[in-house]
């Protein structure tokens, strides 16, 4: 089976991929926060921020189509809730179309939400597709995310597709022996089987960790340094964010 996370280009080599992970994490979160806390985003500001994302994207050698495709897939999910904002009844009437009334303020609110969503989702896609997941985990460790959470994230990343593949194999084995699609009862047997399989795997992994000296915490080496280049990028981005804030 083919599986997709949005990090499939995280192994490329590019200036953006080479940046310090904690720096990238900081810049991404800072950009999202700066965007989200604005009450309105004028069009020129939106275009400016989106252009910055596109420049970063170009520098990172990630295909534009990949970026846009994922943005367009994720955006509707984010904005479905936003639709009720569009039809809210407030202030001056903006336009009326086949009986649906749209008010000026509501339209502005909706556009703002849309802009914020595009920038935040775009930023996350850019960050995750330019940073290897194991680097993100090490960065989490550095910024003192609880070690249990970091370890669980690492296990999810390592084992989720293994679980799905096992599940699909079980499903195929059932379908191969019956002409009908599995019922809810059969599905729940399959899920519970995979549940017990997971518990057993957990027990075996525990043994294998024990055998290599594990004593309750997972330690890793972090061989990333903060370079002068990272410093320059940090400086430039901070100026840019401050401009966006004040402009």
């Amino acid at each position: 089976m083919k599986h997709h996370f949005i990090d499939r280009y995280s192994n490329l080599e590019s200036p953006i991929h080479k940046l310090n992970t904690t720096l990238k994490l900081f810049l991404a979160v800072a950009l999202i926060i700066t965007t989200v806390i604005q009450s309105q985003i004028p069009a020129y500001k939106f275009v400016l921020i989106f252009a910055v994302l596109l420049i970063a994207l170009y520098t990172s050698h990630i295909p534009l189509t990949f970026f846009l495709k994922n943005l367009l897939i994720i955006l509707p999910f984010a904005c479905i809730g936003g639709l009720s904002i569009l039809f809210a009844n407030s202030g001056d009437l903006y336009s009326s179309f086949i009986g649906i009334k749209i008010y000026h303020q509501a339209l502005m609110n909706f556009i703002t939400i849309l802009e914020k969503s595009i920038i935040s989702i775009g930023t996350i896609i850019l960050f995750v597709s330019t940073t290897r997941f194991d680097h993100i985990l090490k960065s989490f460790q550095d910024i003192k995310v609880p070690s249990l959470i970091v370890a669980l994230l690492s296990f999810i990343y390592r084992y989720v597709f293994l679980v799905i593949d096992e599940f699909m194999r079980t499903k195929m084995a059932i379908v191969a022996r019956s002409s009908r699609q599995p019922t809810l009862t059969l599905w729940s047997y399959m899920i519970s089987r995979s549940f017990f399989g997971s518990l057993e795997r957990g027990e075996q992994i525990f043994q294998s960790m024990k055998a290599r000296g594990y004593n309750g915490t997972i330690k890793t080496l972090n061989n990333e340094n903060f370079t002068t280049g990272d410093g320059i990028i940090l400086f430039l981005c901070l100026i840019l964010y401050a401009l966006l804030w004040k402009l």
Partner: peptide, 13 residues
């Protein structure tokens, strides 16, 4: 000890 199932032995990213 090297375990039989490498998916048990290899648990890091």
């Amino acid at each position: 000890l090297v375990f039989q199932n490498p998916d048990i032995q290899l648990f890091m990213p």
